[in-house]
Design a protein around this nucleic acid. Structure first.
Lengths: 337, 337
DNA sequence: CTGAAAGCGCTTACAG
DNA sequence: CTGAAAGCGCTTACAG
């Protein structure tokens, strides 16, 4: 059915090793032009395609990169994955994809599967390291390079591609202060994960050194619903002159939840309240008004992580890279009155 | 470094074939309890994990499913991929992911790579079939099952998981008529692709049999920007009593573009104009007002496509499945005045 | 310049 | 109940 190297060799009347040599362009000038031509011709006629699985077994490299993510359905992750794809496709590597759903036993299962399938490298997103340290160590001992996306893995000295979350919060808070706002609300996901914590800290750093600024922080889930409820409650209860005039939300979804609440109270964005989000997902641009937000370079982070992995595979040394977020100004903020 | 079956066999003092038999639970009662125990023990002690690549070479199956998509960064596709993942992970199959970016030479390249890597099955999204018919035929001749996602591939009788686009448009149009709207606007992506065309036709089917309904259709790109421009132009120019009181947009992004334009003209949604979208992406829920839209069962479609593929791999017959969309009512529509 | 042979890590008839 | 041997499709020293 499938045509093999042996078929090509037979038709070209040479041994498989000679066929292999010309097809792989090895020992270039060590094979006669005539033989070479015959092999190439036979391969073309038979439409020969090498079996990469067999080659991998022999060469002890699979050309597979394992990609273990929490999930893939979110915009953030999806854009990151696109970056990873765009970097991997150049060199004949394929990414094999697993989503662990933040379930620790899934993580173990999939790390094992990837080991079994002999991946040449590993890309990790949202790890819960302590639980499966031994599995990761096995890869490391085996010299299988690993790069972590967006989260540092301190336990194991694994290089990562990070985005400076705290700096992102600085950008947002400073922007709002620059517009003259002095009563600020931060919708924080502090408890939810490390990025939430970093953004919370970043916000505090900017705000605490300003004596003329009144700030408050409400803890919410990443989900928009709780943000909507909390903002509604706060703005409905507070006297107009005590309401925060600007909100820094820990994510775009939370920001849009806040905007829903403000709209419900007939408060206008940005005329009455300014809102800044975080992440810059597709819908930041699509919402009305367009959401001003801190953009994380997710596509770039994904792409870079794969590039680092491939560099490592080529023998280069690689280290953690920290990327900088950027403020994307749209229409959801206005100067304080 | 890595421990192989030979290592296990040696330690258990049996041949590799006996080791293989107990580890694979074959010929169950044909191996003595004692031998069995020794092998299992040795495997456990050495933490043996079988090399799936080697097994694949021998058994002529790779346990890889090739997933060829236009891209992965959009919400729609990402949710579909999540469905695919959730279905595949059960059985030890791994999906290998490629994005062709709607570039025909990419499609060819990746189909070839997937062939070279011996995928056991193929999932396709957004194919441009005519260009690479021979490549697909090769898979078919080789009995590699293929399932197409959301698009039928008529040239080759490949089973697909479809969503009834026309029916979705019926749902939207009928809903708006039911609310009493008689001047309707459809923002159509007719020329952009087959789904746009189907939605356009579906809209016409409902509207044309109603003599009391005035409808117009504007062709736009999937992108929100053109929709915003066109809606702005139309509503700014038309006398208030001539303006469409309801809009059916061919996608959620287009719907949100329309809403931006309406807001810019100080028209309220849904008080002044009702808007229905299509797809039900994350941001439909996040926008203010929440967008009423035709939901495509994307997660389910993805999941089902993988399930079909695996069924086929197990020898079952499979055929095309058509899923039904649903109208998700949120806050962007109101009865006509 | 070319080929015979070994081997990557498995599985599976075939023998005994 | 168990093992020797062949083979999946390649690549690569080693010889000549």
């Amino acid at each position: 059915m499938k045509v093999t190297l042996a078929d090509v060799a037979k038709r070209a009347q040479v041994s498989t090793c000679t066929a292999s040599r010309v097809l792989n362009n090895k020992y270039r000038n060590k094979v006669s032009e005539e033989t070479r031509r015959r092999v190439l011709e036979a391969a073309a006629e038979l439409q020969y395609r090498p079996n990469i699985i067999a080659r991998g077994l022999r060469k002890q490299q699979s050309t597979f990169i394992g990609l273990l993510l929490s999930e893939v359905s979110g915009s953030f992750i999806a854009e990151m994955v696109q970056g990873i794809q765009d970097a991997s496709e150049a060199l004949g590597f394929s990414t094999i994809l697993y989503t662990h759903q933040r379930n620790k036993s899934n993580i173990e299962t999939y790390l094992n599967v990837m080991w079994d399938k002999q991946v040449d490298g590993l890309l990790l997103y949202e790890p819960f390291v302590p639980t499966y340290l031994p599995l990761l160590e096995r890869f490391i001992e085996n010299d299988t390079p690993i790069v972590s996306l967006l989260f540092s893995i301190d336990e194991l000295d694994i290089p990562a591609v990070l985005v400076d979350q705290r700096r992102g919060a600085h950008l947002a808070a400073e922007y709002l202060l620059g517009l003259g706002h002095r009563r600020l609300l931060h919708l924080s996901a502090r408890s939810a994960d490390r990025h939430g914590l970093e953004r919370d800290i970043g916000f505090r750093e900017v705000v605490q050194r300003r004596k003329d600024v009144a700030s408050q922080i409400i803890h919410v889930a990443w989900d928009w619903k709780q943000a909507q409820q909390e903002v509604y409650r706060l703005y409905a209860a507070a006297a107009p002159e005590e309401r925060p005039t600007a909100i820094f939300a820990c994510s775009d979804a939370v920001a849009l939840g806040a905007i829903k609440a403000l709209h419900a109270l007939d408060l206008k964005v940005p005329q009455d309240v300014s809102v800044v989000g975080f992440d810059d997902l597709v819908y930041a641009e699509l919402s009305s008004p367009g959401l001003t937000t801190v953009a994380q370079p997710k596509y770039h982070a994904g792409k870079l992580s794969m590039e680092l992995l491939l560099d490592k595979l080529r023998g280069k040394r690689i280290t953690t890279v920290v990327l900088q977020p950027e403020l994307v100004v749209r229409e959801s903020c206005a100067p304080a009155k």
